[in-house]
Amino acid sequence: MRALSARLPWARGAPWAPRASALAALALGILLALVPAVAPRDITLLNLGFFTFLYVAQGLAWNVLGGYAGYVSFGYAAFFGLGAYTTALLWLAGWPPLATYPVAGIVAAAFSLIVGVPTLRLVGPYFSIATIGVGEAMRVLMLNLDRITGGASGLNLPTAVPSKTWFYTTSLLFAAVAFAVAAWVRGSRVGLGLMALRMDLEAAESLGVRTALFKNVAHSLGAFLVGACGGLYATFLQYVHPDTVFSFTESISLVLIALIGGLGTVWGPVLGAVVFYAVQDYLQTSYPTFHLLVYGVLLILILLFEPKGLAGLAERAWRRMRGAPARLAPAGPSGAEPAAPGRGGAG
């Protein structure tokens, strides 16, 4: 029994899952990092990679509060925009872009606390609606602060920018950091607390889980990452405008990515962002609004048939492939979440 208590497991699902998942992510990351070496001139491919990774990072960041804790925010554009403008202004003041990203993240995280402390007391739809208000208020505010933000004409940024390969690699790095953070949170004590409060807020509080603190930690962690992404985006575009970086569409995109990919799963936002950006990239140029219809259909299908999104679908397919032998194992209660055989015998 002592041996068991010493390694209180956090395992959700099979015990091999976290390690296999980390290895898969590492392999995928290395593979993707080699792309610029193989195709250094393929600007289209590098741009596609840049945007996809940027959305992967943001989807993962959004999912920490939105998926794990179930607080669906439609206001992350405020963090993206603040990050973009922080980088823009510091860059204009002579900072090297790379040094501005952590500051962009910190500004966004600080703002998330100002917003989160009052609004995270709200639950369910009330929280979501409050975040729409905050996001839109920020956009209008920034549009009118034209001394600082350039207002409706935006801000032109320096034209001396790093290479496409640099952007590709940096964006990939952001996605990798976001993945590591999301996976770590999910497996940690904080993650367990976030999931507990999603399922029963009052029970969690009555056991001593500091729910207000954890919600704010999750919120500002997500805001930090999204803010840094905003900074990177501003450098890439060499131009910032309140209507683009604070747009409601940006907020919605993150929700869609997490929903399509799988709320509260680590791989969900990765898959979601790939589908989201690929669909947008292929359809937007030829049929400007057709991608919205595709998202709508995808969303309905997912809500109806697979609430855990693409990640849930992949898991189901994986289980079916090796399903028969797993079913025969005596421990699994219903097959819903296989009782870890290695762990069960540890006592």
């Binding site: 209180l8 497991p9 367990l192 507990a196 399922m199 819903a336 979440e337 009782a339």
Partner: peptide, 12 residues
Amino acid sequence: WPRMSVLENLEL
């Protein structure tokens, strides 16, 4: 928490 294990419930 019905969808968490016995041990996770105790951990909470």
